[in-house]
Lab assay of single mutants.
Amino acid sequence: PDFTLHWNGITIHFKGIDEEQFRHLRELLDRGVSLEELEELAKELIK
């Protein structure tokens, strides 16, 4: 499924991740993950 997340004025689209992965990403963003960390995470998910 696809998810869209609005965070700090940025709209991020996640394609092909499951709800569990999306929930994990939201928790990280709510905790204050940096954009660099988010990019690293995205690379991991894409593999």
Rank of each mutant, 00 (worst) to 15 (best):
P1W: 15
P1R: 12
P1F: 14
P1D: 10
D2W: 11
D2N: 12
F3R: 04
F3D: 01
F3I: 05
F3E: 01
F3A: 02
T4H: 11
T4F: 13
T4A: 12
T4S: 11
T4M: 11
T4L: 09
L5Q: 00
L5S: 00
L5E: 01
H6G: 05
H6K: 10
H6A: 08
H6N: 11
H6E: 12
H6C: 03
W7P: 00
W7F: 13
W7N: 05
N8A: 11
N8K: 08
N8S: 05
N8G: 07
G9S: 04
G9A: 02
I10N: 09
I10C: 06
I10A: 11
I10S: 09
I10M: 10
T11G: 02
T11P: 08
I12K: 05
I12G: 01
I12V: 12
I12F: 05
I12N: 01
I12D: 00
H13P: 02
H13D: 08
H13M: 10
H13Y: 10
F14R: 00
F14M: 03
F14I: 09
F14Y: 03
F14W: 05
K15Q: 13
K15V: 15
K15E: 14
K15M: 14
K15A: 13
G16L: 05
G16H: 07
G16C: 04
G16V: 05
I17Y: 03
I17G: 02
I17W: 05
D18Y: 05
D18N: 15
D18Q: 08
D18V: 05
D18A: 07
E19R: 10
E19V: 10
E19I: 09
E19Q: 11
E20H: 14
E20D: 11
E20T: 11
Q21E: 06
F22M: 10
F22E: 04
R23K: 14
R23D: 12
R23Q: 13
R23S: 11
R23I: 13
H24E: 11
H24A: 14
H24Y: 15
L25K: 00
L25V: 04
L25C: 03
L25Y: 02
R26H: 10
R26I: 14
R26P: 00
E27G: 08
E27V: 06
E27D: 13
E27T: 10
L28D: 01
L28W: 12
L28S: 08
L28F: 08
L29D: 00
L29N: 02
L29T: 02
L29F: 14
D30V: 09
D30S: 09
R31F: 09
R31W: 11
R31Y: 10
R31E: 09
R31Q: 13
R31L: 12
G32V: 12
G32A: 07
V33Q: 03
V33S: 10
V33L: 10
S34K: 05
S34T: 14
L35Q: 05
L35D: 02
L35C: 03
L35T: 05
L35R: 06
E36I: 09
E36W: 06
E36K: 12
E36S: 11
E37S: 05
E37C: 01
L38R: 00
L38V: 15
L38H: 00
L38Q: 00
L38W: 06
E39K: 11
E39G: 03
E39Q: 12
E40K: 09
L41W: 15
L41V: 13
L41M: 06
L41I: 15
L41G: 01
A42I: 15
A42T: 02
A42K: 03
A42V: 15
A42P: 00
A42C: 06
A42G: 03
K43M: 10
K43S: 08
K43I: 10
K43Y: 09
E44G: 01
E44N: 03
L45F: 15
L45V: 06
L45H: 02
L45M: 15
L45T: 05
I46W: 06
I46E: 14
I46A: 12
I46D: 15
I46N: 14
I46Y: 06
K47W: 15
K47Q: 15
